[in-house]
Design a protein around this nucleic acid. Structure first.
Length: 865
RNA sequence: GCCCUCGUGGCGGAAUCGGUAGACGCAACGGACUUAAAAUCCGUUGGGCGAAAGCCCAUCCCGGUUCGAGUCCGGGCGAGGGCACCA
């Protein structure tokens, strides 16, 4: 074994071994318990970032640990390869998105390999390849058949100069990001998936999902947003419309008798009707539709409204109620109309005050007095009905039941559940995505592409130029004959939202080579995913869509479960300090921390940050999430090149628990590297004199027993920390402690060396899921023929943990006063006597009689005086 | 505004079920080796008092429960995140 630790050689050697042995190619084996460990697949943006390294290292540690613990592990990898950045890059460089994407994949795949992840590359999948996305199309057609997919008009952001649709993030302050032109709202036909039909099930199942973080479940529940209430009907007779009913949803039907007006959204049909001969109203409606671009402004903007001049009748009392247009009413929620109860709804109160509408209190809370002058939070609380005719005296739930029953009889209302969740619009007017498999025929209308014509292949040589979807100009793609009548027809050019691609890739990893079916029997062996790992930023959309998609697949009979991810782990973000200069003129300039030298001023105790290139000071903006915009990212490649993959892995696992944020630290990386070098040297120094004799447990002295005890305690802790607690940082700390103890232990006798051998084996094997390359080499150096990756996880020698004496602490009134050592299994009287006999304890109990002695066996004695 | 999470040394963090607060690492300081530097190794390091033994204070603040609270409960302050006119 060579004395010097050289990561490049060690890592190349280990990776070659794993590759040659095909260690990580997973095979179905009904006799073995499987473990499907999946990290969220990356978008091939160009290079890996530290977030990827962290994510994939967590998955790799678990995969390797489970493998050594006898599980049949599948850890696959793929590419979420459709998406907007490829089109942007194409426009910037004049290269087709496909080429840019595949080049990036090649580079990032090499990076992933250099990090030594135990991935089954034989199952690699890429969502922009027809072999994959044809099954998007196939399942979409099944959804069409079942009515889960349907068409309706949707609103998009339209750039009138580029004549193209913009994604929300491409709209900056209401203007197109490239042209600066004011963005228009356009209504176009789009495909939607009926995720709302699954809302109840998606919500209910959350409470059973013990393997998911509470936080994520709460976020999903919040997003689904269930509201139980009553859908009311306000009948009307309006000139030009005739008789009709204005529908509005409420969760507070108990306040129905307090309604003094109705308000509708600007997009509501009644508003449009009233505006036909009312220019001021028409102008107001236009103003509302444009609205502020930013959601937070939308929520805080002043409440504005305008009367329509129309009236509707109260469903119970028959009183005429004015209909207003209100800028705070959302067309997309409920029926786009609300009943105005100013007395008990803060928004309605503000609105009524502004426009001098009547306020009629109908809820009484004992001990409270209603004042029409100012809003008070209790107005919105539950209470007893007053001023409500026959409902007077009823409590919240009873009032709702009574009112709902009466409305039902009048055919003017029913109990209803409303959801915040909307159906999922999947149409994108984009080139670089999965084509939606439909054909437009002048005679037959919209015709689904027949299954045997799948896949609808996306041409890969087009270059978008900013002037809309290039598919619109590609005759070879567009021209098609109608599958129904054979006439000339036109292919749909919209593509699918990329969230479709990622909604089922985890199932396809079980059978990526099947060209006859989307899924096959192998899915039943591997799925569901046992452990899914990814960023918290996907807590809602990706994870919710995947749950929805899995339910659809289940209904088709391809899988037997509804929940795709049994356990979810959300890793924390990677942070770094941000450095900048703010010139008097112009915008803030950010400098990468790699180009900044931070020193400690010895006198002032102040940190000074200086840009290396010009030697002048830069300001620090604190520690924030690594991002391109703040230029505070660290290139993992530079780290791997300088210190090796093991150091990169060790640092990211050691600096913080995996669920928390991770602060980047150059010194911390040095520390991780230093530890690996120490481990290397410890093994080197140990094996240098040659092989050692087998351990004879019958002739151990006290020092031997102490080392063995610590070694096996360490093994026990690492096993628990990785396997159960998922606190890899404390597992590493325990291994470090063991190595520190070994450094102090002299190697003289053959028996000394045998004890050290065992402890080093525990350290090396225990750390192998985290730093697999160096431990692969060290395991060989320790004399093993079998590769470490094929070794079973070691078992704790319970006998080694046993001691004859045990240390206990003695407290007096809860304050630590002494340490004592007692025989294991000593009875309480003996322990009490030993505690009371301690001279320091004596000092503190002399003044008063002992009232009580609490003994926690094996831990402590507390003497109360 | 509502919901969630979190506040521990100079810093990242540990303390797993209410039982020794500060493991491990970083930084800093002292020392060894070296012509020197780097690397490496040894030691010290929450604050105060003390020669030492040891004592007092200390986990954002105030209060409570308990023999015992970083951990549980109530109230406040601060930070981060999610939702945000959802009727």
């Amino acid at each position: 074994m060579q004395e010097r630790y050289e990561p490049a050689a060690v890592e190349a050697d280990a990776q070659r071994f794993w590759n040659d042995q095909r260690c990580f190619e997973a095979k179905e084996d009904a006799a073995r318990e499987k473990y499907y460990c999946l990290s969220m697949f990356p978008y091939p943006s160009g290079r890996l970032h530290m977030g990827h390294v962290r994510n994939y290292t967590i998955g790799d540690v678990l995969s390797r640990f489970m493998r050594m613990n006898g599980r049949n592990v599948l850890q696959p990898m793929g590419w979420d390869a459709f998406g907007l950045p490829a089109e942007n890059a194409a426009m910037a460089n004049g290269v087709p998105p496909a080429k840019w994407t595949f080049d990036n994949i090649a580079y990032m795949k090499a990076q992933l390999k250099s990090l030594g992840f135990a991935l089954d590359w034989s199952r690699e999948l890429t969502t922009c390849r027809p072999e994959y996305y044809r099954w998007n199309q196939w399942l979409f057609l099944r959804m069409l058949e079942k009515g889960i997919a349907y068409q309706k008009t949707g609103v998009v952001n339209w750039d009138p100069v580029d004549k193209t649709v913009l994604a929300n993030e491409q709209v900056i302050d209401g203007r197109g990001w490239r042209t600066g032109a004011p963005v228009e709202k356009r209504e176009i036909p789009m495909y939607y998936l009926k995720i709302t039909a699954y809302a109840e099930d998606l919500l209910d199942a959350l409470s059973q999902m013990q393997g998911w973080p509470e936080r994520v479940r709460a976020m999903q529940a919040n997003w689904i947003g269930k509201s139980v209430g009553v859908r009311l009907g306000f009948p009307y007779r309006i000139e030009g419309l005739g008789e009709g009913v204005l529908h509005a949803f409420t969760t507070r039907a108990d306040t129905l008798m307090g309604v003094t007006f109705c308000a509708v959204a600007a997009e509501h049909p009644l508003a449009a009707h009233a505006a036909r001969h009312n220019e001021k109203l028409a102008a107001f409606i236009e103003e509302c539709k444009r609205g502020p671009a930013i959601e937070s402004e939308l929520a805080t903007q002043e409440k504005k409204g305008m009367p329509t001049g129309l009236t509707v009748r109260h469903p119970i009392s028959g009183v005429a109620l004015p209909v207003w247009v209100g800028n705070y009413v959302l067309m997309s929620y409920g029926d786009g109309a609300v009943m105005g109860v100013p007395a008990h709804d803060e928004r309605d109160f503000e609105f009524a005050k502004k426009y001098h509408l009547p306020i009629k209190p109908v809820i009484d809370v004992p001990g409270r007095e209603y004042s029409l002058h100012a809003w008070a939070p209790w107005y919105a609380g539950h209470g007893r009905c007053i001023n409500s005719g026959t409902y007077d005296g009823l409590e919240f739930q009873a009032a709702i039941e009574a009112i709902a029953a009466d409305l039902q009889r009048l055919n003017l209302g029913e109990k209803q559940t409303t959801w915040r969740l909307r159906d999922w619009g999947i149409s994108r007017q984009r080139y670089w995505g999965c084509p939606i498999p439909v054909i437009h025929c002048a005679a037959c209308g919209t015709v689904p592409v027949p299954d045997e014509q799948l896949p609808v292949v996306l041409p890969v040589d087009l270059v978008p130029d900013g002037s809309g979807n290039p598919l619109l100009k590609d005759e070879a793609f567009l021209a098609v004959s109608c599958p129904r009548c054979g006439a000339k027809a036109r292919r749909e050019t919209d593509t699918m939202d990329t969230f479709v691609d990622s909604s089922w890739y985890f199932l396809r990893f079980a059978c990526p080579d099947n060209d006859k079916a989307m899924l096959d029997a192998r899915v039943r062996y591997w799925a569901p995913v046992d452990q899914y790992i990814g960023g918290i930023e996907h807590a809602i959309l990706h994870l919710l869509y995947s749950r929805f998609w899995t339910r659809v697949v289940q209904e088709l009979g391809a899988v037997e479960f509804k929940e795709p991810f049994a356990n979810l782990f959300t890793q924390g973000m990677v942070l770094n300090e941000v450095f900048f200069r703010k010139p008097d003129t112009g915008r803030v300039e950010y400098f990468n921390p790699a180009d900044v030298e931070v020193t400690l001023d010895p006198t002032a105790q102040r940190r000074i940050a200086v840009l290396r290139s010009d030697g002048l000071e830069v300001e620090s903006g604190g520690v924030v999430t690594m991002s391109k915009s703040k230029n505070n990212g660290v290139d993992p490649q530079a780290l791997v090149d300088e210190f090796g993959a093991d150091t990169a892995r060790l640092f990211t696992m050691f600096a913080a628990p995996p669920e928390q944020t991770l602060e980047w630290s150059d010194e911390g990386v040095q520390g991780a590297f230093r530890f690996i070098k120490r481990l290397w040297k410890a093994v080197h120094d140990h094996v240098a004199p040659g092989a050692c004799v087998p351990l004879d447990k019958s002739i151990l002295n006290d020092e031997h027993r102490a080392i063995r005890r610590q070694a096996h305690q360490t093994l026990s802790k690492i096993t628990d920390d990785i396997g159960r607690r998922r606190t890899f940082n404390t597992a590493i700390a325990a291994a470090m402690e063991l190595l520190n103890a070994l450094a102090k232990f002299p190697q003289r006798s053959p028996q000394d060396r045998s004890v050290i051998q065992e402890a080093l084996e525990i350290a090396v094997l225990g750390l192998s899921p985290i730093i697999p390359h160096v431990t692969h080499a060290l395991w060989r150096a320790l004399g093993h023929q079998r590769a470490l990756i094929d070794e079973p996880w070691m078992t704790v020698d319970l006998a080694a943990l046993q001691t004859s004496e045990i240390a206990m602490v003695v407290q007096v009134n809860g304050k630590l006063r002494a340490h004592i050592s007692v025989a294991v299994g000593a009875d309480e009287d003996t322990v009490r006597a030993a505690a009371l006999a301690d001279p320091n304890v004596q000092k503190f109990i002399a003044a008063a009689p002992v009232r009580k002695v609490i003994i926690v066996p094996g831990k402590l004695v507390n003497i109360v005086v």
